[in-house]
Simulated scan of single mutants.
Amino acid sequence: MKEFAVYTGLRIVLFLASLGVVSGIWLLVAGEANLLGVFVIAFVLSGIGSFYLLNAPREALAQRVDARARRAGERFEERRSREDVD
């Protein structure tokens, strides 16, 4: 659960930082900001940035999810084998 919270928090921070940078640049260049355009550009930039910058937290989350899935699969197989014996 910790890995999920860390990764999600970092994604939110990265999006908010991208939103601030994009809106600041847009305001400097155009004088007023188109909110939809700012959100779309910030969303795309944060997505690309998270692919490179958040690789380690994403890997930790993926390993945690994989370990939980393997344990659940093992428990399922164990229960199924016990039913076959009965």
Rank of each mutant, 00 (worst) to 15 (best):
residue 3 E to G: 07
residue 3 E to A: 15
residue 3 E to N: 12
residue 4 F to Y: 15
residue 5 A to H: 11
residue 5 A to R: 14
residue 5 A to D: 08
residue 5 A to T: 11
residue 6 V to H: 08
residue 6 V to L: 14
residue 7 Y to I: 04
residue 10 L to H: 09
residue 11 R to T: 13
residue 13 V to A: 15
residue 13 V to G: 03
residue 14 L to T: 11
residue 14 L to I: 08
residue 14 L to E: 07
residue 15 F to H: 05
residue 15 F to W: 07
residue 16 L to E: 03
residue 16 L to M: 14
residue 18 S to C: 14
residue 18 S to T: 02
residue 19 L to V: 01
residue 19 L to R: 03
residue 20 G to S: 06
residue 20 G to Q: 03
residue 21 V to F: 08
residue 21 V to G: 03
residue 22 V to S: 01
residue 22 V to P: 00
residue 23 S to M: 07
residue 23 S to F: 00
residue 25 I to K: 01
residue 25 I to H: 01
residue 25 I to Q: 01
residue 26 W to I: 00
residue 29 V to A: 11
residue 30 A to T: 10
residue 30 A to P: 00
residue 33 A to K: 04
residue 34 N to P: 03
residue 34 N to H: 12
residue 35 L to K: 09
residue 36 L to E: 13
residue 37 G to C: 09
residue 37 G to M: 11
residue 39 F to C: 10
residue 40 V to R: 03
residue 40 V to F: 13
residue 40 V to W: 10
residue 43 F to C: 03
residue 43 F to K: 02
residue 44 V to P: 02
residue 44 V to N: 06
residue 44 V to Q: 06
residue 46 S to D: 05
residue 46 S to F: 05
residue 47 G to P: 05
residue 51 F to K: 12
residue 51 F to G: 06
residue 52 Y to V: 15
residue 52 Y to K: 14
residue 52 Y to A: 15
residue 53 L to P: 06
residue 54 L to M: 05
residue 55 N to M: 05
residue 56 A to H: 09
residue 56 A to P: 01
residue 58 R to P: 00
residue 58 R to F: 10
residue 58 R to Q: 10
residue 59 E to N: 03
residue 59 E to S: 03
residue 60 A to T: 01
residue 61 L to E: 02
residue 61 L to V: 00
residue 62 A to Q: 12
residue 64 R to I: 00
residue 65 V to S: 08
residue 68 R to I: 09
residue 68 R to N: 14
residue 68 R to H: 13
residue 71 R to I: 05
residue 72 A to E: 10
residue 73 G to S: 07
residue 74 E to H: 10
residue 75 R to T: 07
residue 76 F to K: 12
residue 77 E to P: 00
residue 78 E to V: 00
residue 79 R to M: 12
residue 79 R to P: 00
residue 80 R to C: 09
residue 80 R to D: 10
residue 80 R to V: 09
residue 81 S to Y: 04
residue 83 E to L: 15
residue 86 D to F: 12
residue 86 D to W: 12
